[in-house]
Simulated assay, not measured.
Amino acid sequence: MTDLSPAIERKTRDSFARQSLMATFGASIGLLAPGTCTVVAPILPLARQQHGVGHAGLTFALGDTAAGYAALTLMPEESEVMTVEMKINLLAPARGDRLIAEGRVIRAGRRVSVVTTEVFAEKADGRDLVAILQGTMVPVTPRDRT
C-alpha cells in the first residue's frame, strides 16, 4: 500500500477536525491510508441507548465518517466529500468500551465512489462486529458546500 501524500493527509485530518459531532463523541482518526480510514470513539454515556449499549446513531455516524474519509483519500486534492446514500445493517448490540469503524473504498470513480465500513465494539476480551455499512460518496468543491 502506498502512503498518502502529505497534502491529502493534512486535508483529510483538517476536514475531520471541523466535525463537531465527532468531537462530541470523542472520536479520532486511527489508520489513514489510500482508500482506507479507521475512526475510533469511546462509547460515552451521552451516546448510549436505553439498554446501556452504544446507540445505533453513534455506530452510523462513525461508520459513515470512516467511509467518507476513506473515499476522500482517493479524490483530487481540491475536493471535499459528501455522502449521497448510506445503508446500515446492525448485527449485534454495541457492547464494549469503544467502537472502531474501519472504512474502505470498494470502487473509486471520478463522480461516485462506493464505500463500505465494518464497525466493531471493543472490550477487554476482544471485539465483536456490530454493523456493516455500504454507501456512495461524491466529491464536492468547497463552493458546493452549504
Results as ranks from 00 to 15, higher is better:
A33M: 05
T65H: 10
A67V: 00
L90R: 00
E80W: 01
V138I: 11
R10P: 02
A92Q: 11
G109Q: 11
D97N: 10
Q19T: 01
G63R: 00
A131D: 11
L91Q: 15
T65L: 13
P142R: 05
L21A: 13
M22L: 13
S20R: 09
D14V: 01
M82Y: 06
A101N: 13
R18W: 02
E122S: 04
S79D: 15
A27M: 10
S20Q: 12
I43E: 13
L32R: 11
T141V: 10
V138G: 02
A92M: 03
S113Q: 07
P139G: 11
S113G: 06
P34M: 12
T24K: 05
D128N: 13
R10N: 04
V112I: 14
A17C: 04
G35C: 09
V84H: 03
P42A: 15
V140Q: 09
H51K: 07
T116S: 04
A56I: 07
P93N: 03
F16V: 12
E122Y: 02
G126E: 15
R145E: 06
T24C: 05
G109D: 11
S15E: 01
M1C: 09
G68A: 13
K123Q: 14
M1W: 08
D64N: 05
D144S: 13
F25W: 13
T136M: 00
A92V: 05
M75I: 07
H51L: 11
T38F: 07
K11I: 14
I8E: 09
K123S: 14
I100H: 10
Y69T: 15
A70V: 07
A56Y: 03
R127V: 04
G52H: 02
A7R: 03
T73M: 06
K87S: 10
L129M: 10
M86C: 08
E122F: 01
